[in-house]
Design a protein around this nucleic acid. Structure first.
Length: 676
RNA sequence: GGCGGGGUAGCUCAGAUGGUUAGAGCGUUGGAUUCAUAACCCAAAGGUCGGCAGUUCGAUUCUGCUCCCCGCUACCA
């Protein structure tokens, strides 16, 4: 790693269809920023590149929903995202966007080179096309009956009822989810990158990086083991980078084709010297991403680069897992998130508190959970009590006893050697942790300096010594100031706003990693400017307000989901009369093996016992329902489900929360009672 | 369904190529202290390391099965 002359750091491109939330920050932006700041402290050559991804279906959906054009949507969010990142101290060298003409040009050139070099496979396939919406339909936008289990509501890629993987053309009675119309099959030509041809080289590449995190190499190797297949690099969509070939109207580049090129095109906006950062052999590329982006950065983009030639491949891809919020998955569409722009407004000047809290429980090895209670604890018990308190003690003691001027070192208390020794261990540990992307550990090492400081003050008791020996007390405070200075350096990557305040207070012009260990960093006689309290305690009511806000969101979302479905189309009496609904009694119930949802019920219908399979296993205990009377449809055509014959269907009422309840007679009736 | 990651103290998480008392921070309890934002400092309590079985002299660490959470599953990105 020391062979590299410079480092190109990227953080994932985010969709410009919503604001930034803490999941994004913890997932890649904060770790990337910490890493970049660390490299800068070490005076290494580095650039930090990111931006918004402004293409793809989610953007068009958002635009449709808001009655805007896609361009209006991305313009709005680009601005908002960029400014909240800036305010939060994410120190990008360039924050670009993929709708930029320079980006279009570069990704088109990239595509064209692959095309001209014959790296693509052209393939004409039949895809479902929604004539009403005038567009081809991605798998997710088609539903129909599952060809395997016959149940309705299967998606184009998968039936969630029986779990089968499907392709859209297999669906029975397909419908577009956009317009509800029946889609037609239409021929379309797309360009595929034959990933299978790069399998060998990709394996070599992946195997040359045994240091990758287990979640990264695990997923990548799993794909390689399954065998790679050609992947379409173009899409039938109107919003995106147009394909630079004749007669390709209505087709654009696959967003995952142009997005990673975005890193490069954005670099070209930063410096005319951009090629050095992506092509020079002594340039190291590091992609910070979330776990959902692993294959695109570790397989597909590398394959594109191999096909193109000339580009360096990523040296590290430190993917984080996900950050949950109060026990639930963060979700933009469900509004379950702590939004950065709201945080910045509601907690002005407290960027570092959030940076600290998110780093301290960063999802480095597994999903993590952000709770407001934890946020409060981290602020009150660590930032205020450990760091803020130590700094305040040092400044107040010097202000009171030495008029704010750093005293000379004289004979010490005998504890100084221990302090120096304790501090001496920190830089190497810190360096090691940061260099290996273990930011959680690194933060603990950096905070250790303040702990050392607190202990030193408690043991040395300069407030007592001063009464007899002013020089000795001065010595202690001199050391304390040096420790504050060290904290300001070691904590710079994590809490840069606080670090800068400290440097100003100390009169330390420059932040330089190599100064760690230097106990003459702040010269005696230096006039200090007490920065005041670095952090303030967060009271319960402030935290409670945030929790309440989330609870209100949740309640609102539940309310929204409680919307009663509209009445279906009118039917005549005969259609109704055809249904033979009856009351029967459950005499036996057991789980169907290898099925999550299915229960095998034996129902006494007054004539005989019949077997009915019902997808209610997640809602009821088999033992608990034996003996219950239920309503069932008796003349439904028998159907095989998971190899077993089901004779009828149990009627269930679905509650707003998705739970199911039996439809039962209000008093016990005889089995076989018909319903009319 | 297949594949990948994870399940370790009340909470958030480390760790062990298998080996004497499994770690940290926070929280809790007790003590000490008052320069400091009722903060700091010291100490203690607290874990059958998801469950079952196997390999082994010995497993929380290896193997198999199983349960739970998360992700991916290739034209959703």
């Amino acid at each position: 790693m020391s062979d590299f002359a410079r480092t190109t750091v990227t953080a994932a491109l985010i969709y410009a269809n919503g604001p930034i939330h803490i999941g994004h920050l913890a997932g890649c932006y904060l770790p990337a920023d910490i890493y970049v700041r660390y490299l800068r402290l070490k005076k290494q050559e580095v650039i930090f590149v990111s931006g918004t991804d402004e293409h793809g279906v989610p953007i068009t959906i958002k635009a449709q929903k808001e009655g805007k054009t896609p361009q209006q949507v991305v313009d709005h969010y680009y601005k908002e995202i960029k400014s909240s990142f800036e305010e939060f101290g994410i120190s990008f060298d360039i924050y670009g966007r993929t709708s930029d003409p320079a980006h279009h040009k570069m990704s088109q050139d990239f595509f064209l080179k692959l095309y001209q070099d014959g790296k693509f496979i052209e393939e004409v396939t039949e895809q479902y096309y929604d004539e009403a919406a005038d567009q081809f339909l991605a798998d997710r936008y088609i539903t129909g009956d599952c060809p395997k289990c016959q149940q309705p509501g299967a998606y184009g890629d998968q039936c969630e009822k029986c779990g089968s993987a499907l392709s859209p053309t297999e669906l029975i009675n397909p419908k577009s989810t956009l317009s509800g119309a029946s889609p037609i099959l239409k021929e379309t030509k797309n360009w595929f990158l034959p990933l299978d041809q790069w399998q060998g080289e990709l394996e070599k590449y992946v195997n040359s990086h045994p240091e990758w995190k287990s979640n990264v190499s695990g997923q990548v190797k799993s794909w390689l083991q399954d065998g790679l297949r050609p992947r379409a690099m173009t899409r039938d969509l109107s919003w995106g980078v147009p394909i630079p070939l004749p007669d390709t109207e209505g087709k654009v580049l696959y967003v995952w084709f142009d997005a990673p090129i975005g890193y490069v095109s954005m670099t070209s906006q930063l410096t005319p010297d951009w090629e050095k950062w992506w092509k020079a052999e002594d340039s190291r590329i590091v992609h910070f991403i979330g776990k959902d982006n692993i294959v695109f950065h570790c397989l597909i983009f590398p394959a594109m680069c191999m096909a193109h030639g000339g580009y360096q491949l990523a040296d590290q891809v430190p993917a984080n897992e996900f950050m949950n919020l109060e026990g639930d998955k963060i979700s933009t569409s469900r509004n379950w998130a702590v939004w950065l722009h709201e945080y910045l407004k509601e907690f002005p000047g407290k960027q570092d508190v959030l940076r600290y809290a998110l780093t301290a429980s960063s999802p480095e090895t597994k999903d993590a959970d952000f709770t407001w209670a934890d946020f409060q604890t981290k602020n009150n018990s660590e930032l205020v009590a450990i760091l803020g308190n130590f700094v305040n003690r040092a400044f107040v003691l010097i202000d009171k006893n030495f008029e704010g001027i750093v005293p000379e070192k004289a004979a010490g208390t005998g504890l100084e050697a221990d302090v120096i020794a304790a501090l001496a261990e920190i830089p190497a540990k810190l360096d090691q942790a940061l260099a290996t992307y273990k930011f959680r550990d690194a933060l603990v090492y950096a905070m250790e300096i303040a702990r050392i400081g607190n202990k030193y003050l408690a043991d040395a008791e300069p407030w007592k010594i001063i009464k007899e020996d002013r020089d000795k007390a001065g010595t202690v405070l001199n050391y304390a100031v040096q420790l504050v200075a060290h904290a300001s350096l070691a904590l710079e990557p994590f809490i840069p706003f606080t670090a800068a305040r400290l440097r100003t207070a100390l009169g330390l012009a420059d932040a330089d990693w190599s100064a760690i260990g230097n106990f003459e960093l702040i010269p005696a006689g230096q006039k200090l400017a007490n920065p005041g309290l670095l952090f303030e305690k967060l009271e319960d009511d402030v935290i409670q307000a945030q929790v309440d806000k989330l609870k209100a969101t949740k309640a609102q979302m539940e309310l929204a989901s409680k919307q009663v479905a509209p009445i279906k189309e009118t039917i005549d009496f005969d259609s109704f009369a055809k249904m033979d609904m009856r009351i029967g009694q459950i005499t036996a119930a057991e789980k169907v093996e290898k099925s999550k949802k299915l229960l095998k019920l034996t129902v006494n219908d007054g004539l005989k016992d019949r077997t009915i399979l019902s997808g209610i296993a997640e809602h009821v205990e088999p033992e608990a329902i034996i003996g219950k009377q239920v309503t069932f449809l008796a003349n439904l055509a028998p159907r095989k489900i998971m190899g077993q014959e089901s004779e009828g269907m149990i009627l269930m009422a679905e509650d707003a929360d998705g739970s199911l309840a039996f439809v039962q007679p209000s008093k016990s009736v005889w089995n076989g009672a018909s319903i009319s």
